[in-house]
């Protein structure tokens, strides 16, 4: 079985590489992640302008280095003379906040349902798994569209919608892990020693499902960033004048022929965010060595 030996050897090498801090791309991603997170946290300190400050005399100024560039406007200004860099920074801050809270909501919702489905093998499990199947079958963007149109978009509604978007992945992972673990001798031993269900869930199951959940959380972050910026792009997410990366691209579309920087700066930031988070997610997946569902 050279095939198997080969796979094992490759796997060892990969783990060694991961333990040593990953390859060059992963290190760049890690550095970018730290920089982006710092930028998001420190936005009010580092943004050169107020994101809502309009200035009629410096409308549609190109980025620094071009003719007519406005003083201090590194990435230029938009149609109302607002600083594109500042708006993009505040937009990223909002996007990341929404993504974190949304992913946390999904984690709590899906994780709880997953544990219940894994522990209670009854009609409850069937019902939860039927819900999971449904969530997968129905294109979620459409439901989000409907809910946001009816309720009107504000940050609370938006973050709830984003939270519901990915719960089924957590539920599937947790249920599968719980089912696998409950068959193990140490759980049986705990049960024989008289431990209750809640105690077993907290002390024995939770520590074992943490690493796959962290991986899923990271991957979910990038999906939520994409969903949020898509909804904001369509005008159904974050509402103006509050800046968001998606709505900057959406509203800047009208000025694309003459002022492409209004669109390009936030678009580049979105792609940087999603690339960084996904590379980190994949790296964590390799490190955690869990067989997650390939998507």
């Amino acid at each position: 079985m050279t095939g198997l030996a080969d796979i094992v050897a490759r796997h060892r090498r990969r783990r060694a590489g991961a333990a040593a801090g990953g390859d060059i791309i992963q290190r760049i991603a890690l550095l970018l992640a730290v920089l982006l997170a710092a930028a998001a946290i420190l936005t009010p300190l580092i943004a050169p302008f107020d994101p809502l400050d309009q200035s009629l005399i410096s409308r549609l100024r190109p980025p620094a280095g071009f003719d007519r560039a406005g003083p201090g406007h590194l990435f230029g200004t938009d149609e109302l003379g607002r600083d594109v860099l500042s708006r993009a920074l505040y937009g990223m801050r909002l996007t990341l906040t929404l993504a974190f809270v949304g992913a946390l909501i999904g984690l709590c919702l899906g994780g709880t349902l997953g544990v219940i489905a894994g522990l209670r093998r009854s009609w409850l499990e069937d019902a939860i798994m039927a819900l999971v199947d449904m969530q997968i079958a129905i294109p979620f963007t459409l439901v989000a569209l409907l809910v946001l149109a009816v309720l009107g978009s504000n940050v609370t509604v938006l973050v709830l919608v984003l939270g519901v978007a990915g719960w089924e992945q957590y539920a599937r992972i947790v249920r599968a892990e719980v089912r696998r673990l409950t068959g193990q001798p140490f759980i049986e031993a705990a049960r024989a020693a008289g431990a209750g269900t809640v105690y077993i869930a907290r002390r024995h199951l939770l520590p074992n499902v943490v690493s796959p959940l962290v991986v899923q959380f990271t991957l979910a972050l990038s999906n939520i960033v994409i969903l949020e910026s898509t909804l904001s792009f369509l005008g159904l997410g974050v509402q103006p004048p509050q800046p968001s990366l998606g709505s900057m691209v959406g509203l800047g579309r009208d000025y694309m022929p003459t002022a492409p920087w209004i669109v390009l700066a936030p678009a580049a930031l979105i792609v940087t965010l999603t690339f960084t988070v996904q590379i980190l997610g994949d790296w964590l997946r390799d490190r955690a060595d869990v067989r997650l569902q390939e998507r």
């Binding site: 990038s222 994409i226 910026s229 898509t230 792009f233 998606g246 691209v249 959406g250 579309r253 694309m256 492409p260 669109v263 390009l264 678009a267 979105i270 792609v271 999603t274 690339f275 996904q278």
Partner: peptide, 13 residues
């Protein structure tokens, strides 16, 4: 990693 609206906007440009 590239959302379809970003892809579309860059292609249009």
């Amino acid at each position: 990693a590239v959302p379809n609206f970003v892809l579309a906007v860059v292609m249009i440009l």
